[in-house]
Nucleic acid binder design. Structure first.
Lengths: 225, 225
DNA sequence: TCGGCGCATCAAGGAACCGTCAAGACTCGT
DNA sequence: ACGAGTCTTGACGGTTCCTTGATGCGCCGA
């Protein structure tokens, strides 16, 4: 179902994960060191990476950083260390999820499932978004408000595309940031405020009382048809 | 609180575990053999299994394997045997935790608590909750009462999600507080009253006579479909 | 009947979050 | 090298949300 690279120097854990992942229909690649991990990453092009931060050679965060230089593949980080610093650092470097050791195997499987689902959803994007008095054609990069055509910048297009993919559903801050600015921007909510403001001034009849680009405080934004 | 199946052929131990688990508010099912265990598992749908590997009929690992064919329920394995092989084999077959006999009862209780907590976190919440005149879509964060869409805050969503996970069953104060505000808020019942009130004003046709968000004095709340 | 307990309700203060403006920094084409 | 367009970053004020205290009601046992 999915090609998953497991990076861990604990052979017991490797075995447990391999069995559990295989049982769920995934193809499993194993690496016991940072170098092996990067080699396998280049050679085998996995669709998901499970990465232990405690590795014999390279630091796990360094491995993550190098992966992120080339790819937006989902990465789930494992760590025995208890410090919250690790978690923050890993997520800032673009980890998609974080699990502390010892962990429940089923919980990890649930997180794998969630990560796979997120990326498979990301594949399909609608070509257009329409609402009374507003159309967005993502294929042609054409936007119209009423009879006027309006100009949107590349970042504005990406943000609107991510919102339009979910058609009126709420999209969390983190998802928007990752989709538009890439992994590693999980906490820069400020970007969203600035661009939401710009977009509203372009697409909303009354930017002060938005009808399409709606914010839910503490959660995210939605694009209302 | 949790429906727990205890599988052991030692009646003394059965008794000890039953008393201790009941004292912590759990519902206890007992089985003395592998066949009984599988029968009870199918019939009673326990939320946690404590499984002794030394059983008169089937091998404990075989019981675990059959359970795992149908369910991801957390299983804590007990064993008198000292070999590490047992442990490896059991964990490979999907056991969540392993305790060697003889064991300290309080330690086992701690592991039960940990297993319950993990799965309550890991369990995937249902995507929607529906009742006549009320729908909650947790994925999209969309709520409607009649034909109106209503706005819920992040904390209100979290509280409703935790209640919806249990579909009409009573959820104790402590569980709600822990799920929404995190561990360490076990006794701040005041939060629940304030937010229950706010939620009722939004989702109930007549907040003074709630039909969905029901309180059970001294116990907790339930969300009625 | 009274007091204690748990719950519902209201209100105020402060914290967290958002919208807005504007000044640099950067990219790209000319 | 210059300028237009775009993105990043900082600052500030307004809004929403959470927390916390105060008060009233109903139930139950003393």
């Amino acid at each position: 179902m999915t090609r998953i690279l497991v990076v861990d120097d604990d052979s017991m854990l490797q075995r447990t994960l391999r069995i559990n992942l295989r049982a769920r229909g995934h193809e499993v690649l194993l690496a016991s060191s940072g170098r092996q991990a990067l080699a396998s990453f280049v050679a085998d092009d996995p669709e998901l990476v499970i990465l232990d931060l405690g590795l014999p050679d390279l630091d796990g965060v360094e491995v993550l950083r190098r992966i992120r230089q080339h790819s937006a593949v989902p990465v789930i980080v494992l760590s025995a260390r208890q410090q919250a610093d690790d978690k923050i650092e890993a997520l800032d470097e673009g980890a998609d999820d974080y699990v502390s050791k010892p962990f429940d195997v089923n919980e990890l499987m649930a997180r794998v499932r969630a990560a796979v689902r997120r990326t498979s959803v990301a594949a399909e994007a609608p070509e257009t978004f329409t609402a009374p008095g507003l159309t967005l054609d993502f294929g042609a990069h054409l936007a119209t408000r009423g009879s006027e055509t309006i100009h949107l910048t590349p970042t504005e297009w990406r943000l609107l595309a991510e919102l339009a993919r979910h058609q009126g559903r709420l999209v969390p801050h983190e998802d928007l940031l990752r989709a538009v600015w890439g992994p590693g921007y999980g906490r820069e909510h400020h970007y969203l405020r600035v661009f939401a403001n710009q977009i509203r001034r372009k697409i909303e009849p009354d930017p002060a009382a938005p009808r399409h680009l709606i914010n839910e405080p503490g959660l995210g934004y939605r694009l209302q048809p």
